[in-house]
Design a protein around this nucleic acid. Structure first.
Lengths: 133, 133
DNA sequence: CCGCTTGTCTATAATGTCTATAGACTTGAT
DNA sequence: ATCAAGTCTATAGACATTATAGACAAGCGG
């Protein structure tokens, strides 16, 4: 796992939406202003979030974004996997993004990194946006 | 932290040297053959390991590489930091490679990733090549 | 000393990923 | 109708990754 701005921007943006869940739709510019995120870039990232049903949108005046699911049901793991892929330190110990890497044949090395992956995944699956509001 | 082939190749190569510590110098070709590593690439990586005193070399016939330090004194953390940088999932929670990233202002998010960083670093600092021989 | 073998070092190239930006299009409210 | 938002596809610049090439240096065996 390595967080890029994709995950980081989305974590911030979704957290912002979680905090404004009461009101209507939140304009993207509000989020960009608050966290200094390039607007066009966040729009791109939001497309992915929307296609994966994490957020709902409305167009036009009064348009914007809101969470499509209660904040308590969106884990940090799901956000990061969506934006940056595997939580594991290397894909040879990844559950959802498995592929062979050079260390694949050294079982002891693998088990070290599997243990780390399990810790990370366990932790990030447990924590939701609600916990951070 | 994200392992690239740099770390993975070096972990394998150093582990191989750890297993052949008794004999003399190990030729790079032996390692490359065993793990299917491009020779010129591993030579490049070995330069870094050598400049950081993890390995010693001898040139010419009977030349090759060997560990410069007992296997029990080389942690996985030191290898990975050298080749791939921060163990932390993002540099805003990294001790040795700190820099600002977008999530820097959200203290709760930071603490989640700090906890993960601490786990990874603790684990990888504890495990040495000797443990994997 | 010669010639072979092995490591050293610098430069560079191919490919992929990250981080956007541009611009034409769609939808909804008034 | 018009304006204000989001949608979508394409593309580009910078950087990282993964090497490869080639000239050089050092050690060994005769």
């Amino acid at each position: 796992m390595k967080l890029t701005t994709k995950s980081e921007y989305c974590l911030l943006a979704l957290l912002h939406l979680a905090r404004r869940q009461d009101g209507g739709f939140v304009k993207i510019e509000e989020i960009c202003d608050r966290y200094e995120i390039p607007k066009k870039y966040l729009e791109l990232l939001f497309m992915t979030l929307r296609q994966n049903r994490l957020i709902k949108t409305r167009r036009g005046t009064q348009g914007g974004y809101q969470l499509a699911v209660p904040a308590g049901r969106i884990s940090l793991a799901s956000i990061i996997r969506l934006m940056d892929g595997a939580l594991a330190p290397t894909e040879s110990v990844s559950t959802y993004f498995f592929s062979d890497t050079p260390i694949a044949r050294e079982e002891k090395l693998l088990s070290v990194f599997r243990e780390i992956r399990d810790y990370i995944a366990g932790r990030l699956e447990q924590i939701t946006l609600q916990d951070l509001v």
